[in-house]
């Protein structure tokens, strides 16, 4: 009989230091485990606790799952202290993920903030895998400082790809930083996209998502063409435990990706 709360086993194959407080864990599940980009999993530290994360890897790669995790809470701080080959549990995948089918033939603007680039990496990789289907991919990414930038080696590789345009900014620069300085909203001017055929996807801290959404609306994006990854404290992942309610929705099963059109009448979505 199926127990919906029982995690399957996975081994931590590799741990990659991304920033001073963010690591990527490469998981190898011991049973087949598939996900769609943007869906999330509950990752269990056996006997200790679990927390929700959206994988950062290409969903087309079946045998491994990358999860990029910032050290911010009880479970994540303990995770940051485990070593390779540790056994963890995963359950899921949960939620609806990014509607990549709807992006076909479109110009795709992706705006990330901080560790919010993690789920977007999964999205980018799945878009790159079928880049013929899309007109263009434009990434705008903001981090607090140069050392907080995620995937430092990957971003330059992405920007060299055909049909891909990348700009990165930091809130606070330092001597060696030659790039943009300023909040991510400051690199949303003069975007190389045609609004009438564009969609945008935003993922980052709530305050960043709020101001980016306002900016995108200001630029002329329609609410139905702005997709947001909402963050809540999902516990069960199945629409039963009640924690992630957002108006008439549960973020875990109706999201975590919503169009702004779905959320614009919901109160306090940025809190």
């Amino acid at each position: 009989m199926k127990n919906i709360y029982k995690p399957i086993e996975a081994t931590i194959e590799d741990i990659i230091d991304e920033t001073p407080n963010i690591k990527t864990f490469v998981l190898k599940p011991r049973e087949p485990f598939e996900f769609k980009t943007g869906q999330f999993i509950e990752l269990t530290l056996p006997g200790i606790g679990e927390a929700p994360f959206t994988p950062s890897s290409d969903p087309n790669v079946k045998e491994k799952i990358d999860v990029t995790i910032m050290n911010v809470g009880r479970v994540t701080s303990l995770l940051h202290n485990v070593s390779k080959n540790t056994l963890v549990g995963i359950r899921g995948p949960y939620g609806k993920g990014y509607p990549t089918d709807e992006f076909a033939g479109k110009e795709i603007l992706i705006v990330g903030g901080g560790v919010g680039l993690a789920p977007l990496r999964s999205l980018l990789l799945s878009l790159f895998a079928q880049i013929d289907q899309y007109k263009k991919v434009v990434l705008r990414y903001g981090a607090r400082t140069p050392s907080d930038i995620l995937y430092k080696e990957l971003i330059p590789q992405w920007s060299k790809k055909k049909k891909v345009n990348v700009v990165t900014t930091v809130d606070v620069g330092e001597k060696s930083w030659k790039g943009h300085v300023g909040l991510v909203t400051t690199i949303l001017e003069d975007l190389p996209i045609k609004l009438n055929n564009a969609v945008s996807i935003v993922c980052g801290p709530p305050i960043m998502m709020k101001f980016v959404t306002l900016k995108l609306l200001d630029l002329g994006f329609k609410p139905e063409n702005i997709y947001l990854s909402m963050e809540k404290n999902m516990s069960c992942g199945l629409g039963k435990c009640g924690h992630c309610r957002l108006g008439k929705f549960y973020v875990c099963k109706d999201g975590p990706v919503f169009s702004y059109e779905q959320l614009q009448d919901v109160r306090d979505i940025w809190d």
Binding site: Y5, T44, G49, C241
Partner: peptide, 16 residues
């Protein structure tokens, strides 16, 4: 109906 899932260590096993 709200609930929270937690993990505990038991003698020979882990439990939710």
């Amino acid at each position: 109906h709200c609930f929270l899932i937690d993990d505990v260590k038991e003698k020979n096993q882990n439990a939710k």
